[in-house]
Structures are given as structure tokens and as C-alpha cells.
Amino acid sequence: MAVLKKLWDYTRNTQLWNSIFRHGPPDTARNRGLVVLTNVFLHLHPVKVRRSGIRLRFTWCMGGITFFLFLVEVATGLLLMFYYHPTVEYAYVDIVDLREQVPLGVMRELHRWGAHAMVITVWLHMLRVFMTGSYKPPREFNWNVGVLLLVLTLLLSFTGYLLPWDQLAMWAVTVGSNMARATPLLGHEGPGSSLLKIGDISLINAGNDARFALLGGRFVGAGALLRFYVLHCVGIPVVAIILMAVHFWRVRKDGGISGPV
């Protein structure tokens, strides 16, 4: 025991140790504050929270769980990208192979169930925020950021839905993307789009409207698969991460978790 203690003391006096950990052990209130403030992973978390902020009955921890699930989705999604080709020839058989032969292909099930769970927890989080009136000033901006995050979560689910490239995926996305036809002005069946024309040439048609931009074609095909893949893996997550940073930051700045202001 004494040897261990000696070793421990020696280690803590090396330059290497001190270059990484700038402060002593978090045994005083000041040190504990400094530890949190100077650590990149911990600094997002406030140094001090209200007692009510960690009461489970009040917060349900739904925001935290949602963030945790997001991390699970990032980790499993990253791994799945090693075994998935976003091409019409291979997308479906790659999914079959995840079940049949890929080592720990259960990753796909984690990803899928995690996604379902995330949608549920996001909704519960919204519900909780709404029920506790936490959307009220000064948190109204963060509520709006939250609404955007909800939309992004749903878009992640929608884009991920196409990737297995089975019949369900293709037709569900066909149906879903048909909604974009009705975009005002920008969808070729949407209100006002018929007004946008030069002479007989209509400016908004099935070959250039909002749906076309979403699918990269007139129907769900190779272009749509690739587009959805890029959106699912890069586009939407990047936006979501930025908004999440804003969201967490504003939680602190707008008076902490959901307590009375």
C-alpha cells in the first residue's frame, strides 16, 4: 500500500501529469469548480446546478437520454458505414448481410431501435418542457431551437428509412416525398406554383421543384438513395450538433434546467 501511495505521489508530480491536469484533486469547492471549467468535456455542464435541476421527477432526464441516444446513433452509425454501400445494387444486400454474416451486425439493430427510442424521448422531452412551462420567457428562444431539433430528429428518421432500400423504404419515401409536391410556390402541385411561368413555360414542374431537389430525380432511385445517405450521415447530423450546442448553452444562460427563474 505504501509503495502504491509512493508511486501515486510520484506520478502526480511528473510534468506529464501536470501538463494534462492543471489542478489538484477536486477536494475543495474551488478546485471542483476549476476542474469543470477547464475540461472541454465537462465545461458544457454548469459548475453548479439547482437542486431542482437534478430531480428526476421534475426533468425525467429526457433531454439527457435523448443526447445519450444521439451519441449511440453516431457511434453505431459510424460503424455501419463501414459495411454499407449507398448504391441501388448493394444497399439492400448489405443490410441482409448485416444480419447474415457481418461480425456484430447487431449494430444495425442498435441503430434502428436507438432511432425509434430517440424520436420517443424527444417527444417526451418536449412534453415535459411544455407541461412545466419551461418554454416561457426567457427560454422562448431555446424552445424554438428545440422545435428545430425535433424536426431534425424526424428528418434523420425519414432519411434513414430509405437506406435499407427494400420495398417498404422505397414506397414509404415515395409517399413521404410526394408531400413536397404541395410546397407553396416551390412544389409543382403546390399553391401558387402555377403562377410562376413565363409565357407558356412553367417555371415549377416535376423536373425542378422541391421534391425534385430532395430526390435528385423525378422518382425514388439511385440519386435519391445517395442524397438521403449524405443527408442522413453528414448534413443533418452536423446541423443537429450545432443546434445542440446552442441548445445546451442556452439552457445554462437562460437560467439553468427548468427551475423557476
Partner: peptide, 20 residues
């Protein structure tokens, strides 16, 4: 915060007093 009990705990673990 049931999801992150490790964070404050990891800071505790670094203290020799815990070991005893």
C-alpha cells in the same frame, strides 16, 4: 442525471483517499 454518474465519480476516483 442517471446517464452520467461516471463524470463526477471519475474525478473522485483520482483521489487516493478513495482507494483506502
Amino acid at each position: 442525471m442517471a446517464a452520467a454518474p461516471g463524470k463526477p465519480a471519475s474525478a473522485q476516483a483520482a483521489t487516493p483517499s478513495v482507494m483506502t
